[in-house]
Amino acid sequence: MQIADIGDVQLHYRVDGDPNGAPIVFANSLGTDLRLWDAVLPHLPAGLRIIRYDKRGHGLSSEPTAPYSMGALVRDTEALLDHLQVRDCVFVGLSIGGLIAQGLAVKRMDQVRALVLSNTAAKIGTPKIWQDRMAAVRKDGIEALADAAMERWFSRDFRASAEHVAWRNMMVRQPVDGYVGCCAAISGTDFYTPTSGLRLPTMGIAGSEDGSTPPDLVRETIDLIPGARFELMRRAGHLPCVEQPSEYAALLQSFLSDIGHI
């Protein structure tokens, strides 16, 4: 286990693959940790330097007092990549990770050469939705939201299997302050204007059964970036990297090949 102490937060991260390879960075969703990408990694091409991390308040990273801002989450990631001396990475962000990706790409063009915006948008939900969710968690814990979250996260077929239980367990075991803090960050974020100014290779990925960021919402954001590519994964929900890891990795490999990153 590796920890980067970047001042007000200590981030747990992991580096796999070729230490001298082309960097690819993965940022996961609300209520999950870096294990979100476990099943994808074996399907990725050799020669990549694969970097994953737990955002503040999640996994094995430290848990500053809520609320958090999106600016703080972007700064955390920026500082981690500086710590690891990462430049010109392909940044893969899912859900809140995709918001972090957009913010980082706007701020640090030297760190990010291409984006994969997975199951995300320039703006996710409304402040009222997030305020209600934060109040529910403060009152009754993350458990109160877990069943509804599983319906948004996974397709019907995947929910019928026992496999989804591990992801439910992961969600409810996240620290309350970390979960609420990141809800606040999402609530306060509207990246439509800055994202529309991005000019870098971008691929969007949506799941046909995603109840959190439906395909039309993902496509709307991808259309803000000239030349961006959009991919729809059928029979997948909000976490297609979990439900269909080999298919997800194939999309990544195709994109990496197209932009000359492998």
Rank of each mutant, 00 (worst) to 15 (best):
K123G: 13
V165N: 14
T32M: 15
L41Q: 12
D76P: 02
A160W: 00
P240V: 15
Y13A: 13
V137I: 14
G207Y: 14
C89F: 01
M109E: 15
D147R: 01
S257K: 10
D18H: 07
C241M: 14
S155N: 06
L80S: 10
A135F: 03
G71A: 06
G7T: 02
C183E: 00
P175K: 13
E151T: 09
Q111N: 03
A148H: 05
E78M: 00
L41D: 11
Y53H: 15
S62L: 09
L36S: 06
G21H: 05
L117Y: 14
R133A: 12
A22F: 03
Y68R: 03
R168N: 15
P127I: 07
A46N: 09
L73D: 15
V180A: 02
A4Q: 10
P194H: 14
L44Y: 08
R49I: 08
E231T: 04
T193F: 08
T213D: 08
S257T: 11
D76N: 11
D147H: 04
R49L: 03
R173S: 09
P245V: 07
L41W: 11
P215G: 15
W153Q: 09
V86N: 12
M134K: 05
Y192V: 02
G178C: 01
N119Q: 08
F91Y: 11
T77M: 11
R75G: 05
R159S: 09
P64A: 15
A4M: 06
C182K: 08
V218G: 02
F230V: 03
I259P: 11
G97S: 14
F158Q: 11
Q131S: 08
D147M: 05
G204K: 09
A146P: 00
C89T: 09
P214F: 10
R234N: 12
V218W: 06
H12V: 00
Q102Y: 03
V172A: 14
P201K: 15
S62H: 08
S155W: 00
Q111P: 01
S118T: 11
I124W: 00
M134I: 12
D88T: 02
H238W: 12
A122K: 02
G178Y: 00
I51T: 10
F191I: 06
A101C: 13
N20G: 10
G197I: 00
H261A: 13
R49K: 07
V137S: 09
I205A: 03
A160D: 07
V137D: 08
I124M: 11
A146T: 08
I222F: 03
A206Y: 01
L80A: 13
A149G: 03
D110Y: 01
G57Q: 14
L104S: 05
